[in-house]
Write a protein that binds this DNA or RNA. Structure first.
Lengths: 336, 336
DNA sequence: ATGAAAGCGCTAACAC
DNA sequence: GTGTTAGCGCTTTCAT
């Protein structure tokens, strides 16, 4: 509607002065600023971000690419990213990129190429070298959450160590017949999360002198996934483990639901531990390892925004490990 | 990087011709188009949407305002919106607006006023008259999902009728001692969804000649919320209903978990019905009423994009009721 | 069917 | 401190 020229005319100054007064950049006398601000308020002036972007190259918005929206960890990240960005005056443009998707190429070649963002946050997406190069060529800072990407600043937990910690907790209680129920090893999430958690489990088991043969069951990374796996795994009492390390709280909850349905007592007959810090953990009194998604999200935004202010930081790509911590609840105990 | 001038030079034509060839608007000979397209591909030209927006007024992006990200219904809507919009070449900018939030004013006055979108989709947000006026003044189409807003085209289910249908199912099985467990009547979601579902419940109960005194328990609209309510409601066997209508599948699942923990058999001692179509419904064999979020999302996008093509449609604000349907599973049966 | 030129609304240099 | 001027990269009349 109204342009900055209208504001300038009304305030009796030049466009440039009006621009300086409103943006805060450059020298303007207090008196003039007041006039300009009043004039702008009077006619309800709102700057056109397009026009500003065209000349400054900044868009005041951040692109987020993420493979899931509805899974707890990711929606938690998303919510936190949105809040942090909004608080700093940034819009958040969302690209939902399922792992094995035909959209992926399109998002990179078409949507991201449009450069409608000042930076990109990649959540749980393992970018290929080509994709990183492509993104870097756009000259915009890039932050990853969820796993190491060469040349990209990243916030992530240590999946192997976390899985080892979970397993060690069960071992320390005296369990020896422990299973790992986690994501399928073929149909992986990015960053080989499934493999890393299995690796941590196997390492802990072997270090304690236990076999890892037949120690793993695959399932979908969801409550129903854990439920299905639980029905299959606990069906035969003779082959039932005394403890299970689930690769996520969702899976752990599904396992517990299945166990209860089969009449198995938690934790006297079966101990279960998960990873995440999901709100359901409380309800199921699930022992779990928290990975603080909101904290990770805030760190990512902080880094991105500071990289925007100090473009020198661009070379500083490094991996920040976020500590995870064990929260004990009564889903685990010593084997009887 | 490269601008349209580069493409034009390389193809040996004027900027205007290059623009026409690439955008598809206006007359260009096939031969010329080919040359231009080849030149663009050669130097990896991508049009600057900012510059284009500045002159066309179109941004090729849509703003979405939504109160929750992690609740199933909303994340399902979000995922579907994103897919539909992406498929049509639109970016999606997300504004997460918790119901009682201080951010709300800021989003309207600052973020939405920037007009960085061609249209707005409001999901589960009951816009005030002022907000609608404000949005309409921006001259952009607006579509709502979740409840009637005067002057705004809306996609919604009939909450009262849906709640009545759910209650009638329990009544038709022969239940007379039925409770409704739903959202708090003071701390409402937008569109008074909590009240509407309670209203539908009360209407069905009274129509069948049953009292509605003491027939309602409030809880959070989540699985843990339903769980808490269930522990409280089912604790005393003497006051236990034979059936419960839960205002959402999440609540219903929480109730079932609580009931099982208390040793109550579903459905022989207690029948439960919910609303949503949540993926957990299958696992808990929950009878539910589906409300098809993805369908609603697609309808909203379709309407918005057609309104963008035919601005005449602007006056056509109307309420489209999305049909809901009962899916019977074994969480309900006749009272014994 | 194509080219030349104007201008979308803003900010950044450079004068004063 | 403030005004003038020159574009940012594109689309769109208006000529031709």
């Amino acid at each position: 509607m109204s342009a900055i020229a209208d504001v300038a005319r009304l305030a009796g100054v030049a466009k440039a002065t009006a621009s300086r007064a409103l943006s805060g950049r450059g020298y303007v006398s207090d008196e003039t600023r007041q006039k300009v601000v009043a004039a702008a308020a009077l006619i309800g002036y709102v700057a056109s971000p397009n026009a500003a972007s065209l000349v400054t190259g900044r868009t005041q918005s951040v692109g987020v690419i993420i493979p899931f929206i509805s899974r707890w960890f990711f929606s938690e990240i998303l919510e936190s990213l949105e809040q942090s960005l909004l608080a700093q005056g940034y819009d958040m443009t969302l690209y939902n990129l399922p792992t094995h998707s035909v959209e992926r190429e399109r998002v990179f070649d078409f949507f991201l190429a449009r450069k409608r963002f000042d930076g990109v946050i990649s959540v749980g997406v393992e970018l290929s070298d080509d994709e990183v190069t492509q993104l870097h060529r756009l000259g915009r800072p890039l932050v990853g959450i969820g796993g190491e990407i060469p040349g990209v600043h990243t916030i992530a937990i240590d999946d192997v160590a976390t899985a080892r910690l979970a397993t060690e907790h069960l071992l320390s209680l005296g369990h020896t017949d422990i299973r790992h129920v986690g994501g399928d090893q073929i149909d992986q999430m990015d960053f080989a999360v499934h493999t890393k958690r299995l690796t941590g489990f196997n390492a802990a088991m072997r270090a304690a002198g236990h076999s890892t043969d037949d120690g793993f069951s695959a399932c979908a990374f969801t409550v129903p996934g854990g439920y299905e796996a639980g029905l299959a795994l606990f069906g035969d009492p003779r082959r039932r483990p005394t403890a299970v390390f689930a690769a996520s709280d969702e899976i752990a909850v599904g396992l517990i639901i299945a166990a209860r349905e089969l009449g198995i007592q938690i934790p006297t007959e079966l101990s279960v531990i998960g990873i995440d810090g999901h709100p359901y953990a409380e309800m199921f009194r699930l022992t779990t390892i928290e990975q603080h998604p909101r904290h990770q999200a805030r760190m990512a935004v902080d880094w991105l925004l500071s990289a925007l202010e100090q473009p020198s930081t661009v070379g500083t790509a490094q991996l920040t490990r976020v500590p995870t911590n064990l929260v004990m609840r009564s889903s685990t105990s010593a084997p009887r």
